[in-house]
């Protein structure tokens, strides 16, 4: 792909708190569909996006059991995005900030996510066509 790009996304928000994480994953989805090489540096609360211990739950207000509710688990979104990138000839290198993981106990992550540090973010940014930081806002 002649116009294949490498993009880095730095995320900061945890899942289930606001729409920024939803939007970030939608942008990554677009890049994955284009077959781009994608780097993700998950910083602070965003390390929970790929947390492997997430579990679905039923919802009494909706009157649905756990299967019917099919609750969003962001770990599944992360895995789906990785598969989408591969399907289109790209890849996602997802790095969880190790210190952020440790202080939160968010050690278990889905397959394909690796532990790293801000040094990885620097390498990612330096080797990318561009970097988008989606930071936490008050």
């Amino acid at each position: 792909m002649a116009d294949k790009k490498t993009l880095t996304f730095a995320l900061m928000d945890p899942p289930y708190e606001n729409a920024r994480s939803t939007t970030a994953l939608r942008l990554i989805n677009i890049a994955a569909k284009r077959g781009y090489d994608i780097n993700v540096f998950a910083y602070e609360g965003s390390v929970f996006l790929a947390f492997a211990m997430q579990k679905p739950h039923p919802n009494a207000m909706h009157g649905r059991n756990v299967e019917e509710e099919n609750h969003v688990l962001t770990k599944e979104l992360v895995s789906s995005l990785m598969q989408e990138a591969m399907r289109n000839g790209g890849k996602i290198d997802w790095v969880n900030c190790g210190l952020c993981v440790d202080e939160r106990g968010a050690v278990e992550a889905v397959e394909g996510v690796r532990r790293g540090s801000p040094a990885d973010f620097l390498k990612m940014a330096a080797s990318s066509d561009n970097t988008l930081v989606i930071g936490t806002r008050g």
């Binding site: 729409a19 919802n59 962001t74």
Partner: peptide
């Protein structure tokens, strides 16, 4: 409004009131 509602599939404040 619409705080993470796509991920939660509802609003936690509404859900809490219902519950």
């Amino acid at each position: 409004g619409y705080r993470a509602t796509l991920e939660e599939q509802d609003d936690p404040g509404v859900w809490l009131a219902y519950t």
